[in-house]
Computed example of a mutant assay.
Amino acid sequence: MSNNRALFGKSWPDGYKAMLAFNQAVADSGLDKTIGELIKIRASQLNGCAFCLDMHIRDAAAMGETQQRLGLVAAWREAAGVFTEAERAALALTEAVTGINNHAGVPQEVYAEALRVFGEETLAKVVYAIVVINAWNMLNVTQELPFKVERPHA
């Protein structure tokens, strides 16, 4: 990746401040922090945002998330018993919203299950969490925001 891309936060500070405010509103919403990190990880995987993926895997690990669960986020459907009902509903909704153009909307069964599990208010928080990480992914991938590669010492 090249490093000749503009950093939009410097190019338009007010836009960056608005993104930070949106991000903070979601963070302060009371949404379960583990679900929030799983949403960020799954969306970042789907969007190919290495910067966000690296950040949120580290954040989740710092919160006590296990290596097994972090490693299985991409295959959560096949990882029976690893993720809770709420986490599975959030991951399914994350995939549907993140890939909304691939299937012309959010499938009714995914939405209905998320509504059943979360109720209207928490469902709204989950969707806003999905929207904000997708926005960060889009910004960071467009900017080709680099991340630091740490290699283990031999």
Rank of each mutant, 00 (worst) to 15 (best):
V127Y: 00
F83M: 07
E85W: 04
Q108E: 14
G81L: 07
I133G: 03
V132R: 02
T98I: 08
E78N: 12
F83Q: 03
V106N: 04
Q108D: 14
I130H: 00
F83K: 04
V106D: 05
V131C: 15
A96C: 12
A135N: 11
A112H: 12
V106P: 02
Y111R: 03
E109M: 07
I133V: 13
H103F: 08
P107A: 11
V126I: 11
N102H: 15
A90C: 08
K125L: 05
T94A: 11
V97T: 09
G81H: 09
A104D: 10
P107T: 05
V97P: 04
E78A: 15
E121N: 10
A104Y: 11
L115R: 13
P107M: 02
E85K: 12
N102M: 15
F83W: 11
V97C: 05
R77F: 10
E87W: 01
E121W: 01
R77N: 11
T84D: 08
A114V: 12
A89Q: 01
E120S: 13
N101I: 06
A86D: 10
A112T: 14
A79I: 05
W76P: 01
L123Q: 07
A129N: 01
V110N: 00
A90I: 04
V126C: 05
T84S: 15
Y128E: 11
P107F: 02
R77V: 07
T84G: 05
V97N: 01
A92F: 07
A124S: 13
N102C: 13
A104S: 12
A90W: 06
A86S: 12
Q108C: 02
G105E: 13
I100Y: 13
L93W: 07
R116P: 06
L115C: 02
E113L: 11
V110L: 04
A79C: 11
A129R: 00
L123A: 08
R88S: 13
I130W: 01
T122F: 04
R116N: 14
Y128D: 08
K125S: 03
N102Y: 14
K125V: 00
V110A: 08
V131E: 10
T94N: 05
F118D: 00
V106F: 10
R77M: 08
E113D: 13
R116T: 15
E109Q: 14
G105Q: 10
A135G: 13
N101C: 00
E109P: 01
A90T: 07
E113W: 04
E120W: 04
A90L: 07
V97E: 03
V132I: 15
T84K: 05
N101R: 10
L93V: 10
E78G: 13
F83S: 01
V126P: 01
A79H: 10
R77E: 14
R88P: 03
G99N: 13
R116G: 09
V117T: 06
V110K: 03
E109I: 07
G81Y: 06
T122C: 03
A112F: 10
G99T: 07
Y128S: 07
N102K: 15
N102W: 12
Q108K: 15
N134I: 03
V82K: 03
V131P: 08
A80W: 03
A86F: 00
P107R: 09
A112Y: 09
I100P: 02
F118T: 03
R88V: 14
E109D: 15
T98G: 04
A80P: 06
A92E: 06
A135E: 09
E120F: 01
L93A: 08
L115H: 13
A135Y: 10
A80K: 15
K125Y: 06
K125G: 03
A80D: 15
I100M: 13
G119R: 04
Y128V: 07
